Computed example of a mutant assay.
Amino acid sequence: MVYKEQKFDEGGPDDFDPARPYADPVAMLEQREYIVREKLIAIEMAKVLRERVQQCYRREGVNHYQKCRQHVKNYLSSIRNVGWGKDAKPDYEV
């Protein structure tokens, strides 16, 4: 059995019109799948960054404020406006 590599489009559909989303139902569904895929990628990236913060905190102990600052900044910037809720998260300054 030969494995064939499956390639995905990096962007949304080219023929989707946001002004008239229901004009082309196939493009609308492709756009919806694209948005869901991007949200799932962002959620998984936030999980990875959260694990890095936890590991740094455990490794550094009392010096975690200075040594883990960049990990925490990356994590906080990744969780802004990520998730399935309709309410947008406020921008926190770090």
Rank of each mutant, 00 (worst) to 15 (best):
D9A: 08
E10P: 02
E10Q: 05
G12H: 03
P13K: 01
P13V: 00
D14F: 09
D14E: 15
D14N: 08
D15T: 06
D15F: 03
D15V: 04
D15C: 04
D15A: 03
D17L: 00
D17S: 01
P18A: 03
P21R: 01
Y22E: 12
Y22S: 08
D24C: 02
D24G: 04
D24Y: 02
D24K: 08
D24E: 01
P25N: 09
P25L: 03
V26S: 01
V26N: 05
V26K: 01
A27V: 05
A27W: 05
A27Q: 04
A27N: 04
A27I: 07
M28S: 12
M28V: 11
M28H: 14
L29I: 13
L29N: 13
E30C: 00
E30R: 08
E30S: 06
Q31E: 08
R32L: 04
E33T: 11
Y34P: 01
Y34S: 05
Y34E: 02
V36P: 00
V36E: 09
V36N: 05
V36K: 03
R37E: 02
R37T: 04
R37W: 06
E38T: 09
K39N: 15
K39V: 14
L40Q: 15
L40H: 14
L40I: 11
L40D: 12
I41P: 01
I41Y: 13
I41N: 13
A42C: 10
A42K: 13
I43N: 08
E44V: 13
M45N: 15
A46G: 14
K47W: 06
K47P: 03
K47D: 11
K47C: 11
V48K: 04
L49H: 00
L49T: 09
L49V: 06
R50C: 07
E51Y: 02
E51F: 04
E51S: 11
E51K: 05
E51I: 13
R52G: 06
V53G: 03
V53S: 07
Q54P: 01
Q54C: 01
Q55C: 07
Q55V: 10
C56G: 08
C56M: 07
C56I: 10
Y57W: 13
Y57V: 12
R59H: 14
R59F: 10
R59K: 15
E60K: 09
E60P: 02
E60N: 07
G61E: 05
V62L: 10
V62Q: 06
V62G: 06
N63Y: 03
N63G: 14
N63R: 11
N63M: 09
H64I: 12
H64L: 09
Y65R: 10
Q66N: 10
K67I: 05
K67E: 14
K67T: 07
C68K: 05
C68N: 02
C68H: 03
